[in-house]
Simulated assay, not measured.
Amino acid sequence: MKQQSPKHSRLSLARRLRLPQLAVFEKVVEMGSILAASRELAMTQPAVSKSIHDLEQQLDGLLFVRGKRGVVLTEFGSLFERHTKSMLAELRYLAEDLNDWQSGASGHVIVGTLITASATLLPEAITRLRQAVPDVVVTVRVGPNSTLFPALARGELDVVVGVLPGDASAVLGDDIERARLTHVALYEEALCIVVGRQNALARRRKIRLADLHELEWIVPTQDSVAYPSVKALFEKDGLGMPRRLVESVSILTNLGLVSSSSMVALMPLSAAQRFAQAGLVAILPLQGLSPFSDVGYTVRSDRSPSAATQRFLTSLREVGQELHRPHRAAAS
């Protein structure tokens, strides 16, 4: 029996697919509705529907399930979406390279960050970049490492800034994706204990952890990289975890809580120092908190950063050197 030829090939897809179709498809996925996508794209709803219908015919598969509340990707559509993101990311990289080549001082850098680790490093690096090349656009997206690293591997981000994972395999389960990322450590991050500026504890010159144990605490969540150091801090003094606590890695939430109550909070030192300078918190004079992780940035290993991203990485390294002693670089 004669074996059938594959239905799709690189050449056949190149002939059939059109780049505007991919942009329309991406917008429909993002909005979850053909009507909403048509408004965003300044197209008519029938035009968007026709673009999706033509795409489904060219691919010979159903991309969306239509319903009263919008559209939902099919399993086939989800497969196509993964590749579409990569293709559109490569187009963005091409645009960046062309603009960099022609102007040398423009571009777009998309940064992913975990906000608890970026109160000082990221803002100062962006400020320095803007002073050098004010026409470079910077987009910051916030999320956990478990979301940011896969997005970086797919090309949706240019760099991830924040606390580096002690075990990359715990964040990225895919060996191929893990091999495509390089982590660069800039400095070690430690925790400190803070209270609101009006808290009576802010005026104490000496304090013991046991004096604070029965108070209300804000501590990092149990899945955070800082949590083992928190447990070790209390165990070293023969204490268990506080009974009255809030688990949070939201800097804005934690600032609001300590400023409006008598709670004490564990906070990354670099962030606490910035907030103390701004008069938002007071850092308690308590020793025994050792570094819990490296702070740095992560980039893809399989492609060179754009000129704009290279400038941003230079800014990150300069600020990192000023904040703390630089450490090693490690590829995962």
Rank of each mutant, 00 (worst) to 15 (best):
E235I: 04
V195G: 04
W217A: 12
S224P: 13
L239E: 02
T182R: 11
S250Y: 06
A168K: 05
A170D: 09
L209S: 05
T253I: 09
E189K: 08
L191A: 04
L172P: 00
T221V: 01
A202I: 04
A168Y: 07
V249M: 12
V184Y: 02
K236H: 15
R243I: 03
R244G: 06
I176V: 11
L186P: 01
T253E: 09
H213T: 01
P220F: 13
G196I: 08
P228F: 05
C192G: 06
E216V: 14
I176E: 13
G166L: 12
P220E: 03
D175L: 10
Q198N: 06
L212D: 11
D174M: 07
R203G: 00
P242N: 01
E214F: 10
I207Y: 12
G196H: 02
V225H: 03
L181K: 01
R208D: 11
V246T: 11
G166A: 07
E189Q: 12
E216M: 08
W217G: 14
G240T: 06
K236P: 02
Q198S: 14
S250P: 01
A190L: 08
D211G: 07
P228S: 15
R208P: 09
T253C: 05
D223L: 03
P165H: 09
E189H: 04
L212W: 02
V249C: 14
V219L: 15
K231L: 15
V249W: 03
L233D: 02
S224R: 04
K206F: 04
V230L: 05
K206I: 12
G166I: 14
G238K: 10
R178S: 06
E188S: 07
G166T: 14
R244C: 12
K236C: 12
Y187G: 15
N254F: 05
G238C: 09
V246C: 07
V184P: 07
S250R: 10
L215D: 02
A210Q: 07
V184L: 00
L186H: 02
R244Y: 10
A185T: 15
D174I: 11
S224Q: 04
E235K: 03
R203Q: 05
D174T: 13
A185R: 15
R243P: 05
A170K: 15
A202H: 01
I176L: 15
I251C: 11
C192D: 13
E235H: 05
Q222M: 10
H183R: 09
T221C: 14
N254E: 15
E189I: 05
G166N: 11
R178I: 00
A202D: 01
Y227E: 11
D237V: 03
Y187F: 13
S250H: 09
V171S: 05
Q222C: 07
L186V: 00
F234V: 06
Y227M: 05
V195M: 04
T182K: 09
A168Q: 09
P165Q: 08
S169W: 07
V246F: 10
V171K: 04
S250Q: 08
L233F: 11
L245W: 02
A185S: 14
L172C: 10
L233N: 00
R203A: 02
R244W: 07
E177G: 10
G173Q: 09
L233P: 10
C192F: 06
K236M: 13
G238W: 04
R204S: 12
R204F: 08
A210D: 11
F234S: 00
I251F: 06
L186I: 00
N199L: 11
T221W: 02
R205S: 10
L239V: 02
S169I: 06
L172T: 11
E214G: 15
I207M: 15
